[in-house]
């Protein structure tokens, strides 16, 4: 099976989830000749060498000044071009803001369909199957693409689930794409930076989240200080966001981000179903809450019944001690 992966970049930097998609493409293809990646942007040709060694022989590169800022109409054209040249059976991307924006257009353009945000993906005998959380994670469905009759199938996968595998130092050949960017109905004026320079919540390996009980935006600094020690990104519950303690971009849950870190520390968060929807697939969950009946404890691997204002600084000190000993 021929598999094409979209390797995402922002501001000239490859996102780690792009390597996840590329590794997965190589694995599903079974041999490097049947796997390829596609890079879209401005001044991104140099990044193609960083994509070698992941098991894909070819990297398509669309490198034009007009592709510097993400624009769905132009990026869709670029991806369309790569698909036409490579003729894959399957196209995969990350279920990121860019991946989720592009693939529905391409699925229609190639008279095909799309499965989004899969947490498992397999191909056998030409069959594309996977697992998809639905209803905010309350159920997981077995999903399959059928009746493709030669058309490429489209899949986006959740970040932080599929392993990055770099089997060799092999080289990848680069094929340049020329993209028609004459469609000017949509113009990207700018991409405004967010408040935090930290790893994005959806890609973070460790997240410390705070709830309503933090009481103020200022108190979120307690979390930030602890987060800095272990390289964590700070998240928030909706109640904390609605109260103005944290910006909406930090919200975890059904109407916020779906996160999947290796460690999620919930501080003073009750564990409402809509919050769990966004973080229940975290590999290890720690809950700190003064109410031992709080639902968050039902999905926690480790829990502390106690006051966050005392527990978080203590935890920060312990982390420092632990990591300090290592140094």
């Amino acid at each position: 099976m021929k598999v094409l992966a979209l390797i995402e970049q922002r501001h000239g930097k490859l996102r780690s989830s792009g390597f996840e998609a590329l590794s997965l493409a190589a694995k599903l293809a079974g041999n490097s000749a049947d796997a390829a990646g596609v890079l879209i942007g401005s001044n991104v040709s140099g990044l193609a060498t960083e994509c070698a060694g992941y098991g894909a022989d070819k990297i398509y590169v669309a490198d034009q000044p007009e592709l510097g800022l993400y624009n769905v109409l132009h990026y869709a054209k670029a991806l369309e071009q790569a698909i036409k040249n490579f003729q894959p059976d399957l196209v995969i991307a990350t279920s990121s803001p860019i991946g989720r924006d592009l693939l529905p257009r391409l699925a229609i353009r190639f008279d095909s369909e799309l499965l989004t945000d899969l947490v498992a993906l397999e191909v056998s005998n030409g069959k594309i199957t996977g697992k998809k959380p639905m209803f905010a994670g309350k159920t997981i469905a077995d999903v399959e693409l059928v009746e493709l009759s030669g058309k490429p199938g489209f899949v986006s996968v959740r970040p932080n689930i599929f392993a990055i595998e770099k089997p060799g130092n092999g080289t990848a050949s680069v094929e340049k794409l020329t993209v028609d960017v004459s469609d000017n109905r949509l113009k990207t004026i700018e991409i405004r930076k967010g408040a935090s320079e930290k790893a994005d919540l959806t890609e973070a390996q460790i997240i410390i989240s705070g709830g309503r009980s933090l009481g103020s935006a200022d108190n979120f600094k307690i979390l930030q200080s602890c987060a800095d020690v272990i390289g964590a990104t700070v998240g928030a519950s909706r109640a904390a966001v609605d109260a103005g303690f944290a910006p909406h971009s930090m919200q975890v849950g059904q109407t916020g981000k779906t996160v999947n870190p290796s460690l999620y520390i919930a501080c003073g968060i009750s564990g409402a179903i809509q919050h769990l929807a966004g973080m229940r697939t975290s590999k290890v969950i720690v809950a700190i809450n003064s109410d031992e009946e709080a639902p968050i404890f039902s999905i926690a691997d480790y829990g502390i019944v106690g006051d966050i204002f005392k527990a978080i600084p203590l935890m920060e000190a312990k982390f420092k001690e632990l990591l300090g000993h290592d140094a």
Binding site: P97, R185, I189, R192, K193, A195, S196, L201, E203, S249
Partner: peptide, 13 residues
């Protein structure tokens, strides 16, 4: 709104 709290700003016909 996109990842990392960034915002893409567009003008569209």
């Amino acid at each position: 709104e996109v990842e990392g709290g960034q915002t893409e700003v567009y003008e569209v016909k």
